[in-house]
């Protein structure tokens, strides 16, 4: 969201968040560290193995899968799953391979997903940051009460908000549109406000304090000092928000009705069991899932340094 480097403000205590991590001493290989590596390696394998299985299944042929269910290699090796996922196979080819025959306009769904996730992320993080700033850095009458009410929003079960929001989006004429899908989480989520407020409250912005600004000055401070200084937290939140928006299912399922607003997660539905007693198109589903996860992975890698380095929490209140 911001490209500015963290502001040259000295944090109050501890090491400077912007400073490179102190050079590690070359440590002796102790049994404890060995064990640590083993545990980490095991967790990595468990984490990554299902992805291998997805790839192996994506490269298999559906009709051969039941016969080779536990075969660690692709059964009936074929790239048809990926062709179906990309919408390159004809309906006839697709049906013949145990696919659904429904059309799959991958680039379009990808674009829809990008639009929705970007809309949600940029707006939600920005507006939530504004609110978090007011809760953390400004003193105003009723602040704590309003914040407590916001926090209570964390506890509202999603099932509660589903239908009223659907009716509202309908009344706004936004059914089957991308803004309709984005809207309910575009302005805030309690988690985003909570997360950023805790963060803002913990950092000492000395320039801001010194300036004792009010009115328009507050906005300038917010944009030029607070957001840049908080950028690691903001980016962490943004990436997590982006992934969450990308993977959302039930809400877009209600709002979207046609290709105009079909996002990737919904498009994956055409690879699921089409009738109650049928099997899913495993190869197509896994291929499409991998393809859908790819942009997220690239996004993460692009921002990884920023997320995991020098997040400057100095305390949670």
């Amino acid at each position: 969201m911001t490209t500015t480097a963290p502001a040259p403000v000295a944090p109050p205590t501890g090491r400077t968040p912007t400073e490179p991590a102190p050079r590690r001493h070359r440590r002796r290989v102790t049994p404890g560290r060995m064990l640590g590596w083993v545990v980490l390696a095991l967790l990595m394998i468990v984490t990554i193995f299902p992805f291998y299985w997805m790839l192996r299944t994506a490269l298999s042929t559906n009709a051969a899968l039941p016969g080779g269910a536990a075969d660690p290699l692709p059964v009936g090796f074929s790239g048809e799953g990926f062709r179906r996922a990309l919408g390159l196979a004809t309906a006839q080819e697709s049906l013949a391979d145990g696919g659904s025959g429904a059309s799959m306009d991958f680039p379009r769904y990808l674009l829809n997903s990008v639009v929705v996730a970007t809309l949600v992320t940029v707006c939600q993080v920005f507006f939530s940051a504004m609110a978090a700033y007011a809760f953390a850095r400004l003193r105003w009458p009723g602040r704590d009460v309003v914040y407590a009410v916001f926090l209570a929003g964390l506890m509202v079960p999603t099932i509660f908000t589903l239908l009223p929001n659907f009716l509202l989006v309908r009344d706004l004429g936004l059914l089957d549109t991308l803004p309709g899908i984005a809207l309910p989480t575009m302005l805030m989520t309690p988690f985003a406000v909570f997360f950023l407020r805790q963060f803002f409250a913990g950092i000492s912005f000395e320039i801001e304090e010194a300036a004792k600004l009010d009115g328009a000055g507050r906005f300038r401070t917010f944009f030029t000092i607070v957001l840049p200084m908080a950028s690691p937290a903001v980016v962490t939140l943004a990436v997590l928000t982006y992934i969450t928006a990308w993977n959302d299912y039930l809400w877009p399922l209600l709002v979207s009705q046609s290709d105009d607003s079909r996002v990737l997660t919904l498009a994956l539905g055409i690879f699921r069991a089409q009738s109650p007693q049928a099997s899913p198109d495993w190869a197509g589903l896994m291929a499409a899932t991998l393809l859908a996860a790819l942009p997220m992975l690239l996004l993460f890698l692009a921002f990884a340094k920023r997320i995991v380095n020098s997040i400057g929490f100095t305390g949670i209140k």
Partner: peptide, 24 residues
């Protein structure tokens, strides 16, 4: 009520909207 809410939403969205509507 919804229309009134809609009004304020549109205002809020204006700052941050990129559109992407449908047309049939």
């Amino acid at each position: 009520v919804h229309v009134a809410v809609a009004g304020s939403l549109v205002l809020a969205l204006g700052a941050c909207s990129s559109g992407g509507g449908s047309g049939s």
